[in-house]
Nucleic acid binder design. Structure first.
Lengths: 141, 141
DNA sequence: CTGCATCCTCATGGATACTG
DNA sequence: CAGTATCCATGAGGATGCAG
């Protein structure tokens, strides 16, 4: 889940001039918190799993089919990470064969809002980003 | 800047039940776009750099002082990545000694809004996350 | 079905030294 | 001042095999 080695950091401040949304970070613990969540959201599979769970509870192999490209190992690890952070619940039904259901917790659902906004920004602006990349890469003479 | 090996992916859908904010991803390119931006935002230094630039244009070593823990190498690489994506502008003044100013572009400033929302979620909920971690880690008998 | 253990590769990122 | 070059440790993440 990305590096967890977060250095001690000074206070800083983020304000968005267009919407007035403001992010205030005055001490190291908050800086680390933000970095921490950002690292989780930025890892390769967490958001995909959360997306797949917004439709409701899912079993392990159903998730695996819903998320093309994920390996069994990484799906397990990602689910454990999300469970550890209280974003996903894990319910084991001791039957034969065993059945395990994963679902978003209230905390996990509350994370969907800011993540969706970031996702929408990505969809709206990916064109500009890719255009900028093309220009930048073309300038390498 | 995190792994760029993004697999082809099926359509998916994210909707937040509390606020009605909705993220729709219907095809592979959009999935990749979201993962792409998430990876950038989730890397270790990008957001810190963007934060440091919201106050206005900054020179290289000023940024370095403002972001405790960042190495010269990673600051350079992060700035190059942000510049390549069109989020940060780089202005060279060919003097002796050389002077280079970095600033957010309009695109970079527009990213501040969703990032600030995610950052605020992190600050508001880090307590719950850490509590969940303590429970989870304590349950390991 | 749901996972854990193992091995392997490669990207991230830190430390250090050097340059225009 | 603002980088680049090099070396190195760590960990993310894939493939495969085994187990309850």
């Amino acid at each position: 889940m990305a590096t967890v080695t977060r250095p001690a950091q000074e206070g800083t401040f983020l304000s968005d001039r267009d919407t007035g949304v403001t992010l205030e970070v005055h001490d190291a613990p908050q800086c680390m918190a933000v970095n921490d969540i950002l690292a989780r959201v930025g890892d390769k599979w967490s958001v995909r799993v959360v997306l797949a769970l917004t439709d409701g509870s899912q079993r392990f192999n159903q998730l695996r089919r819903d998320i093309p490209g994920v390996s069994q190992r990484m799906l397990t690890r990602t689910l454990r990470g999300l469970e550890r952070d209280g974003l996903v619940s894990r319910t084991v039904t001791p039957s034969v064969p065993p059945r395990v259901d994963y679902a978003l917790t209230a905390l996990g659902r509350s994370l969907c809002d800011p993540v969706a906004r970031l996702g929408n920004w990505a969809i709206e602006n990916i064109g500009k980003v890719e255009a900028a990349r093309a220009v930048f890469d073309g300038e390498q003479d």
